[in-house]
């Protein structure tokens, strides 16, 4: 009995989460522009999507910004984690408190704050301002992912390696980096996905004439939904599904209990 209720509950949640997405997928293959009448199978909304220069430009911007932002954030965040033990613990606490601000703050406030900052220093808004803003909200995630990986043993092993004649960079590569690596990769991936998914902060820190996928979707939805956006949804969903499946299968092999660690 209890099991049956649990199953029904899961089923309802699944329907709630996936029926809207499924609707978009079905409609993306619909011949007509209609959102309710099926008139036949067609791929021309996909054609329209791929022929849109604006969309292709936005896709390039989104992914190049995400890769660069994640890379910069990973370097800045990991270095911060390595430097922190050298500070007094009060300073460390203050820094960690400030570190959490962009994560807890509302995106609209972070976005507006950065926009005003760029206006004050007279920075023209465009690719660079978006990139910087993305690193700002990615660094906290890297710090929080890498920090738990630092432990006392790492320091002892590192010391031992130095005593045994290893150079600092060799000991760093062979001892510290492998210890931190899981945290570094999850920080990088988290940053990458946060950056790809961001709309609000990009919206306030971009200039006219530059779009990411999110900002382009927003302006297109405002004019009127075109089924090419359904095609885009389908592609994003399939890519996300594949990426998550691959990540999960790999993690499953490495440690069977890793599913929950993605987030």
């Amino acid at each position: 009995m209890k099991k049956a209720i649990g199953r029904i509950y899961i089923l309802i949640i699944m329907l709630f989460l996936y029926l809207p997405i499924l609707t978009l997928i079905v409609l993306s293959f619909n011949d007509a522009k209609s959102m309710s009448v099926w008139t036949g199978f067609s791929l021309h909304w996909y054609e329209e999507l791929f022929q849109s220069r604006l969309m292709m430009g936005a896709i390039v911007n989104t992914f190049s910004i995400a890769i660069l932002a994640a890379l910069i954030a990973t370097i800045v965040g990991t270095m911060a984690v390595l430097g922190m033990p050298a500070l007094r613990s009060r300073t460390e606490n203050v820094l960690m408190g400030i570190n959490n601000i962009p994560m807890l703050n509302a995106d609209i406030v972070t976005g507006i704050a950065l926009m005003l900052f760029f206006l004050m220093i007279g920075a023209p808004r465009g690719y660079t301002t978006i990139l910087f803003s993305h690193t700002v909200f990615c660094v906290p995630y890297v710090v929080l992912s890498v920090r738990p990986r630092v432990n006392k043993n790492t320091n002892k092993l590192y010391e031992a390696a130095l005593d045994l004649g290893a150079s600092e960079s060799y000991a760093f590569r062979k001892i510290v980096l492998p210890e931190l690596w899981p945290g570094i990769t999850s920080g990088f991936l988290l940053s990458f996905t946060m950056s790809v998914d961001d709309f609000i902060i990009t919206y306030f820190t971009r200039g006219a004439g530059i779009n990411t996928i999110s900002t382009l979707i927003y302006s297109e939805v405002k004019i009127g939904i075109r089924p090419s956006l359904f095609a885009l949804s389908t592609i994003i969903f399939v890519v996300a599904l594949l990426v998550l499946l691959i990540v999960n299968i790999r993690q499953d092999r490495a440690e069977r209990n890793a599913l929950a660690d993605i987030y």
């Binding site: 370097i75 800045v76 965040g77 270095m79 911060a80 390595l82 430097g83 922190m84 033990p85 050298a86 500070l87 820094l95 400030i98 570190n99 601000i101 962009p102 406030v109 972070t110 507006i112 704050a113 950065l114 005003l116 900052f117 004050m120 910087f132 803003s133 690193t135 700002v136 660094v139 710090v143 790492t154 320091n155 590192y158 010391e159 130095l162 760093f172 510290v176």
Partner: peptide
Amino acid sequence: LIAKKPYITPFVIWIIAGTIIPLISI
């Protein structure tokens, strides 16, 4: 031995330019 203060510099620059000054501007 691993921890060196200078490592924290980029982070400090980031939180000053990316978090503190923007909030002050609001």
